[in-house]
Amino acid sequence: MSTSPVPVNLSDKLAQFSELWSQKKVAELNDYEVKLAKLKGEFVWHSHEGTDELFLVISGRLTIQLRDGDVVLEPGELFVVPRGVEHCPVADEETAILLFEPAGTINTGDAGGPMTRAAENFG
């Protein structure tokens, strides 16, 4: 017995959690994960030596601090942080984002520390 395909409703998924800086995996594409997260405050400076990282703002406003200047994202805007580029996400208000990155990517990259968390399956 097969199940029929079901689209992922991002608004519904976002309404199901309130934890900040906790990535929720909502889909997989080849060797990549599509993740949702809610952010508020400042994360940690880090880089991902082996992969680029895509940030898409769904609601709120996200500043991605880079060593050579900040990138500010409004809802509907995305930015790709190139592999190896040190960055620090900051959200002055609660912000919902979609991340697209290879499966198993550590959220704190090379920095580690207390904010390191594995993505939770949320599909």
Rank of each mutant, 00 (worst) to 15 (best):
S2N: 11
T3I: 05
T3D: 11
S4R: 13
P5I: 04
V6I: 10
P7D: 09
P7W: 07
P7G: 08
P7E: 10
V8Y: 11
N9L: 10
N9E: 12
N9F: 09
S11E: 13
D12A: 12
K13Y: 10
Q16P: 01
F17Y: 14
S18F: 02
S18W: 03
E19C: 03
W21E: 02
S22M: 13
S22Y: 05
Q23L: 12
L29V: 15
L29D: 14
D31M: 01
Y32D: 02
V34T: 12
V34S: 06
K35T: 03
K35V: 04
K38L: 07
L39N: 03
V44F: 07
V44C: 09
V44Y: 08
W45H: 09
W45C: 00
W45Q: 10
W45P: 00
H46Q: 10
S47I: 00
E49K: 11
G50Q: 13
D52P: 00
D52Y: 06
F55T: 02
F55K: 04
L56M: 14
V57Y: 09
I58G: 00
S59I: 02
G60L: 06
G60T: 06
G60A: 08
L62M: 11
L62H: 05
T63E: 13
T63G: 07
Q65V: 00
L66V: 02
R67A: 11
R67N: 12
R67G: 01
D68R: 10
V71A: 02
V71W: 04
V71K: 15
V72Y: 10
V72P: 07
L73D: 05
L73S: 04
L73C: 06
L73A: 04
E74Q: 14
E77R: 14
L78H: 14
L78E: 04
L78G: 15
F79T: 06
V80R: 14
V81T: 14
P82K: 15
P82S: 14
R83G: 15
R83E: 15
E86R: 15
E86L: 04
P89V: 08
V90S: 05
V90G: 03
A91Q: 09
D92F: 03
E93P: 01
E93M: 11
E93S: 13
T95G: 09
A96H: 14
I97A: 04
I97L: 11
L98C: 13
L99A: 09
E101S: 11
I106Y: 01
N107Y: 03
D110E: 08
D110Q: 05
G112Y: 08
P114C: 04
P114R: 07
P114H: 09
M115T: 07
T116D: 08
R117K: 14
A118M: 05
A118R: 10
A118I: 00
A119I: 00
E120A: 08
N121R: 12
N121K: 12
F122T: 00
F122M: 04
F122G: 02
